[in-house]
């Protein structure tokens, strides 16, 4: 895109250059990347209005920072990077205000999956279909969002950071302000609850 390169060259020559016509257009960002950013945010926060706000914050943040966008990465990558920061800010705000889960007490939703001897009571069944192809189905998105929504904020954030972003555990501990041992418990609870919820509402085979 020669127009783009022209813009970058001009900005680097003079930071006060008014944005010219070929500059990246924020409304075009919304049109091209809005839905993808929204879905990405939804996987993390499981709440449509929060996800919408995060997309808005991301695009406004991008607008302010657009002169620092040197075009080294694609617009989508750049915007997703900003979104990830907004997600972390949101998680920090939300979890600071919420009481911590009682990690010493047993998690009843998990205890329900086992009998009194600690053996599965009817647990993990054979799944119909594969999670990778399930994302091609709009209804699966609804089910996944509802299952993620059912998790407490800290469990969901720990799960999303670890399973989607593959964030190192030390960083997640800092983000959520928990010890490593507590993070292991949060992750185990999130995984076990989410697996059961998805099985119950989507993957349970009919036979």
């Amino acid at each position: 895109m020669p127009g783009n390169l022209d813009y970058i060259a001009r900005v680097s020559d003079d930071p006060h250059t008014p944005v010219n016509q070929s500059a990246p257009d924020p409304e075009q960002w919304l049109a091209d990347h809005g839905d993808a950013l929204f879905r990405y945010a939804l996987l993390h926060v499981a709440d449509r209005s929060v996800a919408e706000d995060l997309v808005q914050e991301t695009l406004l943040g991008a607008l302010k920072a657009r002169e620092s966008f040197a075009g080294r990465s694609s617009t989508r990558t750049w915007l997703t990077g900003i979104l990830k920061h907004k997600i972390c800010d949101h998680v920090r705000r939300k979890t600071r205000r919420q009481p911590e889960e009682d990690l010493a007490a047993a998690d009843e939703l998990i205890a329900d999956q086992f009998n009194q001897h600690g053996l599965w009571s009817g647990g993990p069944r054979k799944w119909r279909g594969d999670p990778s192809s399930a994302f091609d189905n709009a209804e699966f998105w609804d089910v996944l969002t509802r299952c993620l929504e059912a998790l407490p904020e800290r469990l969901r954030a720990a799960f999303a950071q670890r399973e989607i972003e593959a964030t190192p555990t030390e960083e997640i501990c800092k983000l959520l302000d928990v010890t490593a041992t507590n993070l292991w418990t949060l992750l185990h609870r999130a995984r076990t609850r989410l697996r059961a919820c998805l099985e119950r509402n989507w993957f349970r085979s009919t036979d």
Binding site: D32, H33, A36, L37, R39, Y40, L43, S74, T75, R76, T77, T80, W127, D130, P131, S132, A134, F135, E163, I164, E165, A166, R191, L194, R195, L198
Partner: peptide, 18 residues
């Protein structure tokens, strides 16, 4: 859990790729 992890990382990767 492995299948779920693979699926989530794949979809996140796709969302990063226009």
């Amino acid at each position: 859990l492995e299948a779920l992890r693979v699926a989530l990382r794949r979809i996140a990767g796709e969302l990063r790729d226009p």
